[in-house]
Amino acid sequence: MSKINHHLTDEMLLSYSAGSLAEAFSLVVATHVSMCDECRARLDAFDAVGGSVLNDCGEAVVGADSLDATLARITAGEDRLPARKTKADAVFPAPLAEYVDGDLDAVKWTRVGGGVRQAILPTSKGATVRLLHIPAGTAVPDHGHNGAEMTLVLKGAFRDEFDRFGPGDVEVANEDLHHTPVAEEGEDCICLAATDAPLRFNAILPRIAQRFVRI
């Protein structure tokens, strides 16, 4: 993998460590961390701080059967979700592969126009996460954001008016960003994107299609 130039913010990593991120954003964070040594090390540091804080907290009274009940739930979860071994040539890291039950060839794509395809992944309410397949050289209609968006490149690359994002790079957008991402020539771009609000398109056709494709 090429060098990762765009990383997660400390705020995102702290929220993930604390378990306060929506599931959609947590999936993007977990997938990026599995690809990025730098962010994984920072996350480990935040986890260590959190563990230290817990050690200093007072004891809580729990039921006598709490340990047995917890171990039983862990064992049941392991039975339902056996560990998945990621192939050396896989596009999807393990956290994402669990959500699609496989790799790129297991994705059930839906066309959203202009050759772009998407697959919305099932997560809890509060935010949405989707896989995007953008053909090489194709531009996503220019748009702004009504909330937060986190986009992780898994394969290929895209550029906008401000920078380039390749495999492992993550773009964190908010209401201040307005841009037109374009997949680079030579290879289709596969991204994982989480949003907590609909995008804000300028052109009329994307706005009409928006209600049907849930972007």
Results as ranks from 00 to 15, higher is better:
residue 24 A to I: 10
residue 133 H to Q: 05
residue 110 T to M: 14
residue 145 H to Q: 11
residue 155 K to I: 06
residue 69 A to V: 13
residue 41 A to G: 14
residue 62 V to A: 14
residue 192 L to T: 02
residue 29 V to T: 10
residue 175 E to T: 13
residue 32 H to T: 04
residue 42 R to M: 08
residue 110 T to Y: 05
residue 182 V to R: 12
residue 177 L to S: 04
residue 133 H to R: 15
residue 162 F to V: 12
residue 169 D to G: 01
residue 190 I to N: 00
residue 190 I to E: 05
residue 178 H to K: 10
residue 6 H to M: 02
residue 99 Y to C: 06
residue 119 A to H: 11
residue 90 A to T: 05
residue 116 V to D: 06
residue 108 K to V: 13
residue 188 D to S: 07
residue 166 G to R: 04
residue 87 K to S: 15
residue 88 A to D: 15
residue 70 T to V: 15
residue 175 E to P: 01
residue 85 K to A: 05
residue 159 R to L: 00
residue 150 M to I: 11
residue 76 A to P: 08
residue 207 R to A: 05
residue 129 V to D: 00
residue 39 C to Y: 04
residue 197 A to C: 02
residue 214 R to L: 08
residue 128 T to E: 13
residue 31 T to D: 05
residue 196 D to Q: 06
residue 109 W to H: 07
residue 107 V to I: 15
residue 85 K to I: 04
residue 141 P to S: 12
residue 208 I to L: 15
residue 102 G to Y: 13
residue 103 D to I: 10
residue 198 P to I: 01
residue 99 Y to M: 15
residue 124 S to I: 00
residue 29 V to K: 01
residue 100 V to W: 01
residue 161 E to T: 03
residue 194 A to F: 00
residue 159 R to M: 01
residue 187 E to F: 03
residue 173 A to C: 14
residue 50 G to R: 04
residue 69 A to I: 10
residue 53 V to W: 14
residue 197 A to H: 03
residue 9 T to W: 02
residue 11 E to P: 05
residue 161 E to M: 00
residue 189 C to I: 00
residue 188 D to F: 07
residue 195 T to W: 07
residue 37 D to G: 04
residue 77 G to P: 06
residue 54 L to H: 12
residue 11 E to A: 12
